[in-house]
Design a protein around this nucleic acid. Sequence first.
DNA 1: CAAAAGAACGAACGATCGTGCTATTTTATG
DNA 2: CATAAAATAGCACGATCGTTCGTTCTTTTG
Lengths: 209, 209
Amino acid sequence: MSTLAPASGKRATTREMILEHAYAIAIRDGLEGLSIGSLALDVGMSKSGVFAHFGSREDLQLAVLELGQRRFLEQVKWPALQLPRGLARLRAIVGRWVDWVQEYQSGCVLQTAASEYDGREGVLHDAVVKQQSGWRQEMCRTVTQAIDNGELAADIEARQLAFEINALMLGLHHDAALFGFDEARRHVLAAFERLLASCSPAASGRNPS
Amino acid sequence: MSTLAPASGKRATTREMILEHAYAIAIRDGLEGLSIGSLALDVGMSKSGVFAHFGSREDLQLAVLELGQRRFLEQVKWPALQLPRGLARLRAIVGRWVDWVQEYQSGCVLQTAASEYDGREGVLHDAVVKQQSGWRQEMCRTVTQAIDNGELAADIEARQLAFEINALMLGLHHDAALFGFDEARRHVLAAFERLLASCSPAASGRNPS
DNA sequence: CAAAAGAACGAACGATCGTGCTATTTTATG
DNA sequence: CATAAAATAGCACGATCGTTCGTTCTTTTG
């Protein structure tokens, strides 16, 4: 029992190493474009060796999707949680979200998966819906906290504002990939600031109803 | 030369019939999920019979993409052109665009293709970029005409507003597919109206700079 | 060091992929 | 109706797909 193995055991170690490569492939080619053969070639193992670590291709895809979600939360959510609830946290989330899109410009696994599996049914579809609706709910919660703080107008519909912010990030992703990141970021940040201004409790104008 | 053949010849006729089926498949499975074998099974022909109508799979995908673009323009752009230039036309475009998303809820070929080929290079990537940037430019032009008409504030950046409208439609597509169309439409229309209001020349507030 | 356990390999499977080639059938022409 | 031309079918190819199975190599355990 003098296991010098790195705490997690060899099995888990190589599994994570494989997942890392799979994640990189999925960023470029999507979860549907991820094949066990090319993955094995990439990690320098045999097909069956790679396959043995996941019961099936579907389980591999699921694992990659979960890795993407974990990365997203680590990079966007957790750091923002250190800021006080409300507007400050909302700004931090959006800022880090923009950085996230910049890092994975040519394909965030979560958004790619969303458009790959939104029409089909199956385990992956369910996982995508769960992931997307969960994150949306967290965005709603943060917006609600900003309202409770009095930092956003009281008559704001949290779901409406969360939808609009999400749409802006989709637009960022789309434009960054096709036309270039810099201008897309300018557009997103300008739109977000104007959106917040129109939601300010001092604003006399219309709010996202 | 007593051709009773329907004007376009048999070749073109069956080609269009095949394209129709390919379009339907691409809506569900994307252009990458479109295979000649399954398409042949769908139209009730042999693989080689279908293949002969397009020089390659890539040309088939290109043809489907072009069909999608033609459909989009027919359903969204052309009808809106009958309205006077400016704000009325912009509203018509957005309205018909929403209807378009409703019709092809589980996958507009254009958006699917955009997310499939934004990271790769090749003929399809180029076609997608050309299509997307062309349409964006048309949106910019309509916005500019509304400004020239005095229906939108003079200091509005057309590219910014066009980006925001496109982002809203991406959000509609995303939410409609994952969470249901009706609420997504509510969100989009509310956001669009608020966006227009904030761009009104009478508005004292900030505009999309 | 020997024995048991685990991890990776290599080969093969049936299927499907896109793409050629050659018949055969269907259509249009004189 | 005969004949040329076009459209489709049929077959096969090399590749790759996900998956299974038995063997070999490596690691851990007693």
